[in-house]
């Protein structure tokens, strides 16, 4: 029991930090809903894992990775906004996933179940999260400069398109790990809400990124602990914890104004 809780908390910290940190860029890029929708693309991958008896999360990784590349490529070729492409893809993926996933496993795929986490999954989650945060840190300023002005970034020698692709791939990885805790339906929360909360109380970029990662961790860890003590599903409690943090920052912002 204690070991399971420790593993859950380790994953919780990893996902909270990485989703919060990467999500801070998603919110700035006004792509918050892209992060949410992207998570649904994992469903057919999860389904294949369940049907063919391999770890469903590897299926989710593969589908998210492939989707990120397709979204990036279509965005470049068609010049359509990311939201449009992701919107079309995620609804199809959701439909396919729900049709393919056997009913008893559907609930876990949609809402996650961190109580069944293994040591290997924990190690994978920690390694992926650390890698995602470190790589994102390396391209953070480039991405922000690209958001401020793509021309400005290109004139400084930044390959905006490739940087965006790397970022999308890293988001896919973090989303795939996050699915274990809160499931495909709620993982978008971890990408959006901690960052939105951090934005309410930040005047500079470094503070914003650190707070976003911290709020993500507070949300996942409190959700996991409450879930353990109250014996309730983890996903919704992570969401409730995060929303309390978000409301607190709204209050702070309102008072400051």
């Amino acid at each position: 029991m204690a070991e399971a809780l420790t593993l859950s908390l380790l994953i919780g910290i990893s996902v909270g930090v990485s989703a919060g940190y990467l999500g801070s860029l998603m919110v700035l890029k006004k792509m918050a809903l892209v992060g949410d929708a992207l998570s649904h693309v994992a469903l057919p991958g999860l389904a294949l894992g369940i049907l063919f008896n391999f770890n469903p999360f590897f299926g989710a990784f593969a589908f998210l990775f492939a989707s990120a590349v397709i979204i990036w490529h279509l965005g470049r070729v068609t010049k359509l906004p990311f939201e449009t492409i992701v919107g079309a893809m995620f609804t199809v993926a959701l439909a396919v996933g729900i049709l393919l996933i056997p009913e008893p496993d559907l609930l876990e795929a949609l809402f996650g179940d961190i109580t069944k986490v293994t040591i290997l999954e924990t190690v994978v989650a920690v390694v992926i999260s650390v890698m995602a945060v470190l790589l994102t840190k390396m391209i953070y300023r480039k991405l922000v400069l690209g958001m401020i002005s793509e021309e400005l970034a290109i004139s400084k020698g930044i390959d905006v398109s490739r940087t965006n692709l790397l970022y999308l791939l890293l988001v896919s990885l973090v989303v795939a790990v996050g699915i274990k805790i809160v499931g495909t339906l709620l993982v978008g929360f971890l990408v959006i809400v901690p960052a939105a909360a951090a934005k309410n109380v930040s005047a500079d970029l470094s503070k914003y990124a650190v707070l976003s990662a911290s709020f993500g961790t507070v949300s996942t860890c409190s959700g996991i602990l409450f879930s353990s003590y109250l014996n309730l599903p983890t996903g919704p409690l992570v969401v409730f914890s995060g929303i309390i943090v978000f409301l607190a920052t709204v209050l702070v912002k309102w008072k400051a104004e």
Binding site: K30, M147, I148, S149, L152, K156, K199, A203, D204, L205
Partner: peptide, 24 residues
């Protein structure tokens, strides 16, 4: 060596300080 100042930049919604921007 060319320095470029574009006409439009999107900064309204990005919490980046002058110090951070200049220390790119």
């Amino acid at each position: 060596k060319i320095g470029y100042v574009p006409q439009n930049i999107a900064v309204d919604d990005i919490p980046i300080s002058v110090k951070e921007f200049l220390s790119y």
